[in-house]
Write a protein that binds this DNA or RNA. Sequence first.
DNA 1: CTGAAAGCGCTTACAG
DNA 2: CTGAAAGCGCTTACAG
Lengths: 356, 356
Amino acid sequence: MSDSRSSRRQRNAPTINDVAREAGVSPMTVSRVINGEQVVRAATREKVQAAITALNYAPSAAARTLAGGEETRIGLLYSNPSSSYLSEFLVGSLDQASRSGVDLVVEKWDDEETSIEAVVAHLQRGRIDGVILPPPLCDLAALVDALDRAGIPAVAVATGRAPSDLAAVSIDDRHAAYEMTRHLIALGHDRIGFIKGNPNQSASAKRFEGYVAALTEAGLPMRDELVAQGYFTYRSGLDAAEHILALADPPTAIFASNDDMAAATVAIAHRSGLDVPGDLTVCGFDDTSLATTIWPELTTIRQPINAMARAAVEVLVRQLKGRRKGDAAEHLVLDYALIRRQSDAAPRMRPRLGGR
Amino acid sequence: MSDSRSSRRQRNAPTINDVAREAGVSPMTVSRVINGEQVVRAATREKVQAAITALNYAPSAAARTLAGGEETRIGLLYSNPSSSYLSEFLVGSLDQASRSGVDLVVEKWDDEETSIEAVVAHLQRGRIDGVILPPPLCDLAALVDALDRAGIPAVAVATGRAPSDLAAVSIDDRHAAYEMTRHLIALGHDRIGFIKGNPNQSASAKRFEGYVAALTEAGLPMRDELVAQGYFTYRSGLDAAEHILALADPPTAIFASNDDMAAATVAIAHRSGLDVPGDLTVCGFDDTSLATTIWPELTTIRQPINAMARAAVEVLVRQLKGRRKGDAAEHLVLDYALIRRQSDAAPRMRPRLGGR
DNA sequence: CTGAAAGCGCTTACAG
DNA sequence: CTGAAAGCGCTTACAG
């Protein structure tokens, strides 16, 4: 078939030397013609072109990259392997890296064991040209600074607050949380609990802002006791949910800042003999695989993780190719979606009609 | 400093010579390690691996293609993205692929949408030289056959029953389950429930065999009512656990064939007002991230997923290089470990002392 | 305008 | 089991 362009060279594939001999010039001249350099005399060029045609010559991509030294390698630096997020992120970025013709090096960083200087040095040794930073590393200012000082471009993924000089790919966390809260309100809930995300991630604050905005817009009071601090882990969700549900007047719905904490909330609810969503509505954020693993399946905000990963690779590659000082960094905002599943329902009693 | 366009080499990427120097061997030896050639002494191999890690070295695809052979691309074909398993598997195989200097193409297969013929054709068009099959695809005979007919070598990962002509990497599922069951018996349990895995995976049967073997060895009766069929999903674990715990005389321990089903069992136990492990011991299998996500954290069998993925890549690369008809396929068996966490304890009443 | 030289980073083929 | 040599096909850097 049309395999002529593939990287597998045919056995007797003509080389630049064959062309040179046929045309009666040096390989160097053939190279110039191939690369469209204008200096070559028209007559010479034609002789070379004829030889190329006669031999059906196609240059070897491998040889060109090797000689030209143009390989670009990008790194994907991650920590805290929230595996459900990571696997989707990996699949997306790998695929795009392959399409963009760059090498992707996946690097795990354990911040307990390795200093920032050490990771950056490691990346430099590996000749990483640029780095993708999924959360929570995207918000680690010290890392971003160190990368910047080392001259390694980076792109932050899913950060809630990207400095204007740092490329970023994200969704509108604030608006997504706003929409979910509005959805809960539309269902009839007026006492809605909220479990915050880890303060070390800027998206956490954005999600909380969205929750507050929807409440305010609906004229609902924002009650501090209904808000608990979480850290995106299941464990922290357990504690937060326990706290909220132990209230004298507990909420009829709880919106957790991610799926892990929402799953923990469901577990606590069940342990307390509450039916979800009959007695308590629970919603999450992210739509990781956990959302559809547990029962009931979680109503949540779908983050397009795969698409964000692809976009991150593209943004980084563009930045590496066309690097000009002063160019503003790209900030891409992708679409999210509110996914309704089985964990939300109208509250059992309509407070507006009866009160409690 | 290093203006990317004019300098001959972009930054100083570590080369095979750098690694050789660091390891105190010749470049040739490094090359052998990269290509998984068996001749290299283990001690030498380790020195080289260490140097590769230290320098964060990745071979240049261009140079390899040019110098020698054709570039080799291997595929990782997966379905049913059990993400906790997949992400670890991806990280391991990617890293090894990079070290082995082969391209890894990650391919998702939705068996509902695409026929076996179509996937195989797709792999061929993409010039995939060999394929890694994580579960459950490793046990799909029709796929293995189609690959074989197409002349695409494959390596099965975590299968319980590899045909002798199919390369495979696995653990001893039977013995691992045997050991876990023995552990439960040693704790004092004599009524131990078991949730089987999906029958479409050969490892399921192995795990069940191990459970039966330990019971038999201890002179304990094997009670059919204590065994429920599961399918490795959380949902199936919910049903199975509900069934087992509804028994008139329920077990004091339940051993689930994977962590998802063990997590579901914990959820059902909590919903029924049972304390884990106070009232019920629950154990899993795999040690995916879910095992340490939920509370209590699961006592389980650790499958070295990362190491298995790396091994699969190495085995496949070796097979692609040294392909000789008639050579027996490699069967690697890696070590597992029983990880004790917080979900197991002695039964509340010692049956041997009191009965019930 | 054109060419001779010196590699790019790796592997093949041979030696010890 | 390990290494020294000779390229793979092309380009960079320098001459003329």
